[in-house]
Each structure stands twice: as structure tokens, then as C-alpha cells.
């Protein structure tokens, strides 16, 4: 009886996942989803600000990751970093084409600044310690810049222009914020 229990390998390691994706093993997509979808969906929905669109983008991202997997070079970075960038770029393309239709770029930035001031959405997992730690670690100025750069798809110059800050200040804050995040992990 229990002999036949389907035992998942005790860890679907990143290496294992990379190997299976490289071997075009479609079952790897299920493992991929279980491992990365919560984070990817979190990031994408933060960018596109709509769950239905985010679901579409996640699906497009998985197809893109599958199709362009031969381009992934494990020597240049971890799988998670790569898939985050693929997903983030698709999501940013999505809002750019939308902003293009609706109007100016500035309007988009205003929207995302307004979103900054809102308390964390209740859809964030309340017991999730990561976000709380980040809020405690980064001052609002740093967090705003990282959010605009990472979730808003803005360049440093665009952020500097919109926030009326010298470019050097934007660069320093971004750098300090990433350094603080690094320390949080160690």
C-alpha cells in the first residue's frame, strides 16, 4: 500500500529543474509552477496591478521561459533571477503598451506613486515575514526608488526627473537599498 505512495524527490532542486527544462521534459513546468509561481505572480501583479492580466502574463512568461530556455546560461546567474527578469520584462511591456494607449508616461508614474502610499494590499500573505522585514529595513525614500525601478520599469534618469532629484541621489539610494537588502539575507 504505502509502498506505492508517489514520493516527490525530497527537493526539486534548481539544478534538477534546469536539467529537466533543458531536456524539454514538460513535467518540469509543473515543478516550476509550484516553486516559482507565488513569487512571479506577486511581482507581475505588482507591475500590472490587475490579477487577470497578471495571470495572462504569468502564462506568457512560462511559455517564453520554455521556448527560450536554451538561451539561459546558468554561469551568468541563478534560474530564479533569470525567470524574474523574463517575467518582469513581459509585465513591463504590457503596462507600457497600455500606457501608450491611455496617455502619457507621467500619468503612469503618478499612479505608481499613489500605489506606494497605500498600505500593503491585504492579498499579501500576512504571516509572510519578508515584506515586514523589508519595510523595517528600508526607509520609504529607498523603497520608493527600488519599487519604481523594479516594479515600475523606469530608468534611473526617469525616476530622477519625475521625483526632481539629482541623478546621483537616485543612484546612491538604489545602491544603498540593494546593499541593505543584501545584509538582510546574510
Amino acid at each position: 500500500m504505502s509502498d506505492t505512495l508517489p514520493i516527490s524527490p525530497s527537493t526539486a532542486s534548481e539544478e534538477d529543474l534546469v536539467q529537466r527544462l533543458r531536456a524539454r521534459d514538460e513535467s518540469a513546468l509543473t515543478l516550476f509552477y509550484d516553486r516559482y509561481a507565488p513569487a512571479l505572480f506577486g511581482v507581475i501583479s505588482r507591475i500590472v496591478k490587475d490579477d487577470d492580466t497578471a495571470e495572462d502574463v504569468l502564462q506568457e512568461a512560462m511559455v517564453k521561459i520554455w521556448n527560450s530556455f536554451p538561451a539561459y546560461d546558468a554561469g551568468k546567474g541563478r534560474l530564479f533571477t533569470w525567470v524574474l527578469n523574463v517575467s518582469r520584462n513581459l509585465a513591463i511591456d504590457k503596462i507600457r503598451s497600455r500606457q501608450h494607449r491611455v496617455g502619457t508616461r507621467t500619468q503612469g508614474l503618478d499612479d505608481s506613486l499613489a500605489a506606494q502610499r497605500l498600505p500593503a494590499a491585504e492579498s499579501f500573505r500576512p504571516e509572510h515575514i519578508g515584506l515586514k522585514e523589508i519595510v523595517q529595513t528600508l526607509v520609504p525614500d529607498q523603497r520608493q526608488i527600488i519599487d519604481l525601478l523594479y516594479f515600475g520599469g523606469y530608468t534611473q534618469s526617469e525616476v530622477a526627473e519625475e521625483l526632481k532629484l539629482p541623478l546621483g541621489t537616485v543612484k546612491t539610494r538604489a545602491r544603498t537599498a540593494i546593499k541593505l537588502l543584501s545584509k538582510l539575507i546574510r
Partner: peptide
């Protein structure tokens, strides 16, 4: 650090 940041926004 950014992986961690992204993961903190997991939903």
C-alpha cells in the same frame, strides 16, 4: 538581494 525582494512580494 532582488530575488529576496521579489520573493517578499510572493502572493
Amino acid at each position: 538581494a532582488l530575488e529576496y525582494y521579489a520573493d517578499a512580494h510572493a502572493r
